[in-house]
Structures are given as structure tokens and as C-alpha cells.
Amino acid sequence: MAGTQYIIVGVGGQGILFTSRVIARAAIDKGLPIIGSEVHGMAQRGGSVISHFKIGDFSSPLISEGHADVVMAFDQKEGIRNLPFLHEGGTFLVNVDDPSMLENVHLKRYIADRRIRVCGFRGFDILDEHAKGAYLFLNVLILGAAAGMKIEGCEEAPLTAALETLSPPKFLSENLKVFGLGLNAA
């Protein structure tokens, strides 16, 4: 099937929806169809949040287990929990909070068996160091990291353009700065 399928996961309140909107805007600007499913309401109150997002010729907003190309995780536990969405050889982009977790023997075996490409970055540390610990910018940082790690559908130029379009004016310069931090986190 022609297209790219993303599962974006984290915890309610982390600003996940903005991330998929930026990728969506960039895809539309390239003339590609998009469809996705978001979580609003009760599930946003600090609970597990999952966004399905697809670029290409799809009808359903939902992704079946074993069919996602990319799992983007704002939270590493949520990311690990949702790895079954990835097809073999898929990409796991993850904000690494506790690197020891990724050293778990069973997890390493699962990742190796499924030939999963793991792209980790230390989001909280980067924001602590360069953005006064403003974790609200994690959603932009992860986009930068996706571009930096050459993840499908996340090229630097169209994402930057989409970010410029969608950022509220008062956050634009900070968003672009954090996006740059993400690019270099790779």
C-alpha cells in the first residue's frame, strides 16, 4: 500500500495533536492525502494518548497492529507499549527518559526479532539545557528529531514551512529554535 502510517503516543497534555497537525500540513502542501484519528476529551487528562496518522491512499483513520511505519513516542513507556503497531523493520522514534529501560533483555530481543530501527533522543535533558525545562516544546523537538533522523514524510524544509504556518505568533521563534535542537539531537 502506497503511503506512510504513523502512530504517535504519549501522555495527555504533552501536545501530541500539534505534532500530527504539522506533519499533516507538510503532507498537504506536498499534495498528498492525509487521514488520522485523534484523542480528545477524558483521555486527554494525563492518561495514555494515541494518535493514528496516515499519509497516502487510505480510507480509514485507524492503523492495524503490524502496519505502522513509525511509532513516535513522547513517553518511552507508552512507546514500548505500542510497539505491536509497527511492521517488521519499522522505526521507533522515542524520547528516552530512562535509558536502562531500553536495555531490558526481552525488549532488546523483541526489537531485534522485529528488526525495529530505534531512534532515541534525550528530550527532557535537551529542553532542560536549552529551553529552561519548557517540556511543552517536546512536540516540536520530536518533529526536529524526526527530520534529523530522516524519518519518512518528515523532511526538514516542508516541516519548517508547516511549523511557520501553524505556530501561534508568540511561540514561533521558540518553536523554530527547538525544532533546530531536535534536528541536532539525531
Binding site: 486527554q44 487528562r45 494525563g46 495514555s48 513507556k77 514500548i80 531490558n104 526481552h106
Partner: peptide, 14 residues
């Protein structure tokens, strides 16, 4: 792995 790492779905909370 999830069992060892204590990973469960997070409940919504105040």
C-alpha cells in the same frame, strides 16, 4: 519486557 518494566496503560487523572 512490559511485565518486568511495569508498563501499563496510564489512566486519565485530575
Amino acid at each position: 519486557a512490559m511485565k518486568e518494566l511495569g508498563i501499563e496503560p496510564r489512566k486519565p487523572q485530575l
